[in-house]
């Protein structure tokens, strides 16, 4: 049966997504690059230099430690730093042997290693005790960029870290809500063009009910994610306000339905309101966030994740997740619709 197979397919997709969410490891990254405050000797040099500690996350620096290179970068300027000691897989000590005159205060830290590939810590170091001369030019050392030689893993992103897994839950919730509200929108238009049959109205109501459920789940997953990346359960942000207001608008739809007793009038009025609600949804979630700066990913452009942020390992899980949640949402909507139409028939029978 085709009917049954797409539902099982949706469940299978979600099962795959859940397994990937929990079992795929996070790739390596850099956490910190700080001064230890003590001075030390670099091998085969007499001069004393300040020792900096580099802390990685999930790195493998004990494997072939002599091939690890640490490079500072500012624009096109590069300067490689000498290694002092490899403490363990995620800690190394580095000597800061830059000259007194440097072209900038803040530098990116680039670390290359045959296993982890090239890792970047943006603005990782801030030099307080140097003289700044922007005209300074250095001879650039040769460095090669490696890709990581690790099994399938999610990309490391600063701040987000392990919570990147929430991407497969949070974003598809909103996509599914969009889909269901779209179904409701179409059903409302068709309800307004057919006067006698109330079936389209039942459709619109059922899809709004399930859509609201997914909207609420989207708010909850978003709130959890905000707690771990921004430090607060809720922040004042156009995207978040838009999401909350959208849910309120559709809650208003259900309130409106509860107010009206006459079922024909109810079908007509709630359809009219629903069309307004969908227009507001488009404005709030797709137009307004582009007008304003926002903490939320995809600021000033695509309100979802920017496609550049999604690398191939994320995409391999993200797209099935979107499809799977949409299938589950549609299925729940079908069940709800069936229940509602039975209710309607029962009332007709009485």
């Amino acid at each position: 049966m085709i009917q049954r197979s797409w539902k099982i397919g949706g469940l299978a997709l979600l099962g795959y997504v859940l397994c990937m969410i929990f079992f795929v490891p996070l790739g390596p990254g850099l956490l910190e690059f700080t001064s230890t405050g003590s001075a030390g000797h670099v091998q085969d040099q007499d001069r004393k230099v300040t020792v900096y500690a580099l802390t990685g996350f999930g790195t493998h620096w004990t494997e072939s430690p002599d091939q690890l290179t640490v490079v500072l970068r500012h624009g096109t300027q590069l300067a490689s730093l000498p290694l002092i000691e490899t403490l363990d897989a995620t800690h190394v000590l580095v000597g800061m042997d830059l000259p007194y005159t440097v072209p900038s205060k803040s530098w990116d830290v680039l670390v290359t290693h045959p296993v982890d590939g090239t890792l970047l810590l943006e603005n990782g170091v801030f030099l307080q005790d140097r003289f700044i001369d922007e005209q300074t030019k250095w001879a650039n050392p040769e460095i090669a960029e490696y890709p990581a030689e690790l099994p399938f893993h999610f990309p490391y992103q600063p701040q987000i870290l392990e919570t990147i897994r929430n991407l497969m839950l949070h974003v598809p919730m909103w996509f599914t809500m969009f889909l269901l509200m779209g179904i409701s929108f179409v059903a409302s238009i068709r309800q307004l063009s057919t006067a006698h049959d109330l079936h389209q109205d039942t459709k619109a109501e059922a899809s709004v009910q399930i859509g609201l459920l997914f909207g609420a789940l989207g708010l909850v997953t978003g709130s959890l994610w905000a707690r771990y990346t921004w430090g607060a359960w809720w922040v004042d942000d156009p995207q978040l306000n838009g999401a909350l207001v959208t849910v309120l608008v559709y809650a208003g739809y259900l309130v409106l339905r509860a107010t009206i007793q006459n079922i024909r009038l109810r079908a007509r009025l709630s359809s009219v309101y629903n069309l307004f609600a969908f227009v507001i949804l488009i404005i709030l979630l797709m137009v307004l966030p582009r007008f304003s700066e926002s903490l939320h990913p995809g600021k000033g452009g695509n309100p979802g994740f920017n496609s550049y942020d999604l690398d191939s390992s994320l995409r391999a899980v993200f797209y099935p997740a979107v499809l799977g949640w949409m299938m589950l949402g549609t299925w729940m909507y079908h069940v709800r619709l069936k229940a509602s139409s039975i209710e309607r028939k029962l009332r007709q029978l009485q």
């Binding site: 956490l31 910190e32 802390t55 996350f57 870290l161 392990e162």
Partner: peptide, 11 residues
């Protein structure tokens, strides 16, 4: 990683 535990104990 000990530092990572400090940043995010739950994880």
């Amino acid at each position: 990683n000990h530092l990572f535990f400090q940043i995010n104990p739950l994880e």
